[in-house]
Amino acid sequence: MNGDTFKINVEHLDFHYGDFFALEDISVGIRQYATTAFIGPSGCGKSTFLRCLNRMNDLIPETKVEGKITLDGNDIYAPDVDTASLRRRVGMIFQAPNPFPMSIYDNVAYGPRIHGTTNKAQLDEIVEKSLTRAALWKEVSGKLNTSGLALSGGQQQRLCIARVIAVDPEVLLMDEPCSAIDPTSIQKIEDLMDELKSKYTIVIVTHNMQQAARVSDWTAFFLAEHADRPAKLIEYDKTDTMFTNPSDKRTEDYITGRFG
């Protein structure tokens, strides 16, 4: 509906891993029902930043976040926020496909089950719907009871997408979801993202600039100019503008392949 509503708004975010100052003064608004891509060279903190958006970094000891991140206007780092409920709304797909060592069915039913759905017919429906949305149903409908680990890498990643869709989140964070899988599956996942965008807010980290250009509406460019300095947000704009007419010299250099 409204392409300019900020689903997630980040203001002046600093992030530390122990003594290491990783991100400095990041401010960015993530638009609803759109795909936003974070690009930048390896190690520039774009994945770290992504993991701040659903507080996944909380799982890593000795990390520190300063600044403000809001989801629909509510501060997600407020003391009374339940991280489990937050992550239910802001799901995540990881770089390496990580299906659980259980059947395909149980993988997809995992989320609904922990959130209290026990009705078999209801679960069946969710599993079929989620696998269909993740463009995997046709390939696995006959073998739902086989292990999720028996699938190919690309299928595993789509299973992980189905698994997250099954809990019906509002935002999908994708951390280089295509870096470990084959080209055919990449194609499928990109098509999928295009479809999912009508219902979800998607944020994708990628170091494949063609991919960013293909799938995203908005692009943010991160860069740490020296190895011992924190990364900053260099430029954030419509993807078309970023790739055709970047306003910052460093963005242009990166996009045209002069470094990174």
């Binding site: 659903n54 489990a84 992550r87 995540m92 797909i93 299906p99 989320g111 922990i114 992980c160």
Partner: peptide, 9 residues
Amino acid sequence: EGSAAMGAT
């Protein structure tokens, strides 16, 4: 992480 990312406690 996969489990946490689906809102599991």
